[in-house]
């Protein structure tokens, strides 16, 4: 198993204990990124900077130290377009990825920013509006007019024919337990971002590289097998190869979203096929 990327807060006492690891650093927009990155790079690999802002993109002051770095700027929304319009060139020139929530105006904002050449990533926590997500997915994968990638759709599309394992949401969202581990400030390890937020930890830093941790990662990665053993409806869904039961819990709880997610992932499987056929006509 390859060494996972550790997604962790920018905490000096924690970073001191992570020498030799590849890191995804969660930082505030105001953080002294240049100094942090220099310190990290002395003894670690830098996977990405995850800049966590609590203001809309239009209100975030871009940090020019982000230029040339792999930055994901996490914002609650893009904000009013009129407030953002004057900053588009600056945002584009920084080459950052703007991460948006799936709720609120997130889907609309992702499409707007992508159409203007700004790379976006959707955080798919919670239950989306499946129809709206389907529209965005179709746009992301089939629109013929040039636009920036929208993740996780782009990664899934890129790998859908070459690497069967990565045709699920997790890898594009830093949530694949084989490739990413999430650390709390005090060094406890979670297998997903959701687990981190729920404070469901599998151990601490002492476990890094241990067979026990590898076993936990492997088990989580293959948790989808249980759906087959349980004869869960997800196991019979044509969209399963893309979602791997990510929304199975919603179904089990009777949240009424199963039909939506099945329709969405089934549609996405079809769109991926269509994408490879390179249609001449617009899809809608």
């Amino acid at each position: 198993m390859t060494k996972p990327v550790l997604i962790c807060p920018d905490d000096p006492s924690l970073l001191d204990r992570l020498a030799g690891q590849s890191l995804g650093l969660r930082v505030a927009p105001s953080a002294d990124v240049a100094a942090t990155v220099e310190a990290v790079r002395r003894q670690n690999g830098l996977f990405r900077l995850l800049v966590e802002a609590d203001e809309p993109l239009a209100a975030v002051k871009p940090n020019h130290a982000w230029r040339g770095l792999p930055v994901d700027l996490m914002v609650p929304s893009a904000g009013r377009f009129a407030d953002l319009a004057g900053r588009l060139d600056e945002v584009r020139s920084l080459g950052i990825t703007v991460c948006l929530p799936i709720g609120g105006t997130g889907l609309r904002d992702a499409r707007t920013l992508a159409s203007l050449g700004i790379r976006t990533r959707l955080g798919l926590d919670g239950m989306p509006d499946w129809d709206a997500l389907g529209d965005l997915m179709t746009y992301a994968l089939l629109e013929l007019v040039a636009h920036a990638p929208i993740e996780p759709f782009q990664t899934i599309a890129d790998h859908s024919r070459t690497d069967a394992r990565t045709t699920d949401w997790s890898s594009a969202l830093f949530d694949d337990p084989l490739r990413f581990l999430h650390l709390s400030a005090d060094g406890r390890i979670a297998l997903s971002r959701r687990d981190l937020l729920n404070e469901e930890f599998v151990g601490d830093l002492a476990m890094l590289g241990s067979p026990a941790l590898a076993e936990a990662q492997q088990a989580r990665s293959e948790a989808w097998r249980q759906l087959f053993l349980d004869d869960h409806p997800c196991a019979r869904c044509p969209g399963f190869r893309l979602c791997r039961g990510r929304y199975a819990e919603g179904d089990a709880k009777g949240a009424g979203m199963a039909e939506g997610c099945a329709g969405f992932f089934t549609e996405m499987a079809g769109v991926l096929e269509q994408r490879w056929l390179r249609p001449e006509a617009r899809p809608w």
């Binding site: 609309r108 013929l144 007019v145 636009h147 617009r282």
Partner: peptide, 14 residues
């Protein structure tokens, strides 16, 4: 609707 604004820009550019 805003979504249609983006659609129209794409449609016309295309």
């Amino acid at each position: 609707a805003w979504e249609n604004v983006v659609y129209l820009a794409d449609f016309l550019q295309h």
